[in-house]
Design a protein around this nucleic acid. Sequence first.
DNA 1: GATGAATGAGTGTTCATTCAT
DNA 2: AATGAATGAACACTCATTCAT
Lengths: 220, 220, 220, 220
Amino acid sequence: MSGTGRRRLPRQVREQQIIDAGVRVFSKRGYHAAVVDEIAELADISKPMVYLYFGSKEGLFIACIRREGERLTRGFQEAASAGKSADEQLWAGLSAFFGYVAATRDGWVVLYRQAPEQGGEIAAEVRRQREAVMAAVVELVRSGASGSGALAERGGRDAEFVAHALVGAADSLTGWMADHPGETPDKVTLRLMNMVWVGMRNVLDGEVWVPPDGDSAAGE
Amino acid sequence: MSGTGRRRLPRQVREQQIIDAGVRVFSKRGYHAAVVDEIAELADISKPMVYLYFGSKEGLFIACIRREGERLTRGFQEAASAGKSADEQLWAGLSAFFGYVAATRDGWVVLYRQAPEQGGEIAAEVRRQREAVMAAVVELVRSGASGSGALAERGGRDAEFVAHALVGAADSLTGWMADHPGETPDKVTLRLMNMVWVGMRNVLDGEVWVPPDGDSAAGE
Amino acid sequence: MSGTGRRRLPRQVREQQIIDAGVRVFSKRGYHAAVVDEIAELADISKPMVYLYFGSKEGLFIACIRREGERLTRGFQEAASAGKSADEQLWAGLSAFFGYVAATRDGWVVLYRQAPEQGGEIAAEVRRQREAVMAAVVELVRSGASGSGALAERGGRDAEFVAHALVGAADSLTGWMADHPGETPDKVTLRLMNMVWVGMRNVLDGEVWVPPDGDSAAGE
Amino acid sequence: MSGTGRRRLPRQVREQQIIDAGVRVFSKRGYHAAVVDEIAELADISKPMVYLYFGSKEGLFIACIRREGERLTRGFQEAASAGKSADEQLWAGLSAFFGYVAATRDGWVVLYRQAPEQGGEIAAEVRRQREAVMAAVVELVRSGASGSGALAERGGRDAEFVAHALVGAADSLTGWMADHPGETPDKVTLRLMNMVWVGMRNVLDGEVWVPPDGDSAAGE
DNA sequence: GATGAATGAGTGTTCATTCAT
DNA sequence: AATGAATGAACACTCATTCAT
């Protein structure tokens, strides 16, 4: 039915094919709503193959998480080490991020937009991959801030903060970008750089803006 | 079995009770994995009541989305209109956000962290509520930038951009905050203000940072 | 479809109905080949009811084993205690056995003719019930042999032996009886009594027959 | 992978190897729960070989039944014809039985402890083999009773009865023996001889024990 | 002669949803 | 107003069986 070359593929290839389909379907439906039949059909194989290769729906999901996470982390690290000056490195990293997400939106969604508490095995792998991504971003932020001396003393807590803010902003902008055809990864990256580049250093050096004295809180 | 106040509550109260339970369970499990039995049990009623009040699981979910969305939007708008100067308003808005999320994490999760493509009705309501929230934030950003003249001409595209970046960052920081007991909503708000306050104006006025000339892209 | 009274039975009744069906189907097909749909249909309910009441196919099977085992054990004990003299007691016990099995062949089959190594839970319950039955028979044998003094000294090992031989013979004769319409439980009991009554005492007292000296060989 | 002797065995040998594995697995799991993969692996071949040699799982099972049944019958007949006097023959037969079962427990289990109603082909072969075994035992019993004249007139019904009782007792004792390490086939045989040797003749000659007059029945 | 790769058909189990009371 | 009892429809997973090599 798929025209070229259906049966008898070597194990390696089939595996990637199935993961491709898995990422697509998990991304579109979410883990629970995803139906193994649909994944199998998209991968142009029968359902038992999925079980032969990955053991269970959960196993397949974990494989998807792992591959996408590793791809993303690797892309990041390459980008981060490529640049020269601090701002160039951050620029390269954010470009890599938006480029990757624009190119493989599904992978990102599977990695970041699943219900938070899938059972044990899944949760563990998700955490692992997300932490790897965050670690890469933190590294990016740190090297981008190497000019300012204050960093070492403060235990890196601020770099973590910045990294989370960046990834969150980028994640959100990713969806926005997808809904606004005119926006390209490059344009988005440029704007985000402008938005955070100056302020990042403030945070990493210790804050300078202070809240108006009176009402410090809002929630309670 | 629940001791106080089981039977014969007025409709209004019951409804809120059920929505409370719904938000909690949907947040913990995600839409599909959530089981109506668990919600009913948590609300201390029998399952048919859920169907009597909301018609279906989907109906209940929509009601949850709506209530949480409206709460959040309202909190935002109040915060935004309360302040005086531009930075005070933004500060108040972000404080409201982190305060709300810290106080009712489940509501936020249900609203923002569900699989993107739940069937038609749900998708529509989710979109509606998210857009309302975004509109409030955009308003917040605009009034915070009222000093700079260039805004009107550019169609608000930049304000939207900033708003998405802010919400995304805040969303991500929300999770980070939950994992780092030392971090309070106030401390997080302060850092985020420092990180974006200066750069925001850059973006809203037109960018000033420029990428290194050579290789502007990263993806391909 | 079943004519009288389908829906809305009290829990107790339904449970017995389902166990009845379970015993019948498990007996006919064996545990693994038995299909839950067939049991449900025979019980005149839908499949989910089976799961609501027993949790799983295994749970239902265990319930079947337990009920049939307890019935059989109870019947035995009543029969055994009813008689006066030793031979009367044994006669009553064997009569009870053949009567029960002729009346509820399926129950016996489920209890004794399943593959030996069904998983943990099942194996445990089967063992428990079989041991209860055997204990009752051993008791029967012991009281039947109370005349002979030698019993106590030999640790009851011989009584166990006799009990196993009796149950095995009875089990086998049960199938034979089912295939030979002329044979009634009473006639079978009578013959079995004649076959073992004299020899039993020999065994319980210590053997008297001796093999020919050369020991014509067993296996190895 | 199995070191010695994998490939290119003559058909005869392969067949026996597979049947060996089949008997082992069928015995352990029962017909339905047995999985062809496991049998193939145990036989150290690939699954399609099983189908090449036996056509289907059912075909393999039938082959197992047949081989084990024939082995058992042959062993019996040899034992029966070997002895001289009546009691020697019975002793030899029972010894053969316990010896065989102790040596090849799996074969016995496959032959006698499967769910009664496996589909047509299987049922037929099981019946055939069991009848062959029974015929041999009946023969054994008859020759053991040749001294008593009454036998011929009663159509052999009693010999059949005795044979079934013997086989059942022996079957049951077989399991008991496996659970009590001290018991050897010889000791078990000796006790069973003592238990039945005297009584057997009673039955074959016509009964002598009579039930207590009153309550002949037990069931109801 | 032998096998890795592949699948059609079926089974246990769950869950949203609805009656009958 | 409220619920225990019941079910239709799906879905994850398994297994006997067959190709293509």
